[in-house]
Design a protein around this nucleic acid. Sequence first.
DNA 1: GCTACAATCTCCAGCGACTAGAGGATCAAG
DNA 2: CTTGATCCTCTAGTCGCTGGAGATTGTAGC
Lengths: 140, 140
Amino acid sequence: MTLISIGRLSDETGTKIPTIRYYESIGLLPEPPRTASNRRLYDPHAVARLRFIRHARDLGFEIEAIRDFLGLMDHPGGPCHHAHGLVRQHLEAIDAKIAQLQAMRHAIERVSPNCPYNRVEQCPAIEVLSDHALCPDGCP
Amino acid sequence: MTLISIGRLSDETGTKIPTIRYYESIGLLPEPPRTASNRRLYDPHAVARLRFIRHARDLGFEIEAIRDFLGLMDHPGGPCHHAHGLVRQHLEAIDAKIAQLQAMRHAIERVSPNCPYNRVEQCPAIEVLSDHALCPDGCP
DNA sequence: GCTACAATCTCCAGCGACTAGAGGATCAAG
DNA sequence: CTTGATCCTCTAGTCGCTGGAGATTGTAGC
Ligand SMILES: [Zn+2]
Ligand SMILES: [Zn+2]
Ligand SMILES: [Zn+2]
Ligand SMILES: [Zn+2]
């Protein structure tokens, strides 16, 4: 029964106020009741929902995936294999991104750290950026 | 002396035409000369410049960093330590991102792959997203 | 020359996921 | 009663493109 203001919700979940209103505008958070003077009032259920959203976002899930999760959670008795699918998909996306970053790392690392010229002309750091042929295998 | 059209430039660099015009609009590519009927004409210098931009973007450099690189390259006789600084900075950013993704990976991996309930209620995949306390150390 | 059709032009709008600001109303404390 | 914090709505900006509308121009076949 303890209803809180948007500022309080912001503090409790570490979510900026405009972001909360944004989530409401895209339908991730339901429109909350208002005071007589039109201010939003949130109940503990909304707090939990927003905490879920923020944590999933922090873990890199996209809004649409979160929308799916929330849809599932609205039917607690239903099956959960779709949730597992979403998680697995996301893990695969993360792995792909890590692999790509590591390939980029290797390509850039190739930039000779000891540059013998100290001039833009012939600087290996710039050359390796200019010429894809100098890149190692994994370069995107 | 071989001047090419924007479509040709697009093909040779693997850059979409709107992207080329976009780069021009933000000043990454200079305004090229035009035909009598107002079509852009590019020389080999522009091709090289665009190739550089694309490769650096593929390696994850931001537009502003690329703008810096290009500024340096316009003075080939100048010193290059700023270029090395940009590269080092970018490497550090990549490392940070990799570390964060791996932390996320671990947090999500914690999601028990064998779910004994098969119902949204009590599904560990959803629980671990709901409750940050279930996360391992590195979770963002 | 005429007719297709491809390529190009400019301008504008949209993506994802917020973030920031203007300008106004309302609340709580002194 | 006044001050300052909080809230409201609405609009526009971020980044790096991407796509479309509608107009014009270039090219090829007949
Ligand atoms: Zn150097
Ligand atoms: Zn490369
Ligand atoms: Zn499950
Ligand atoms: Zn966590």
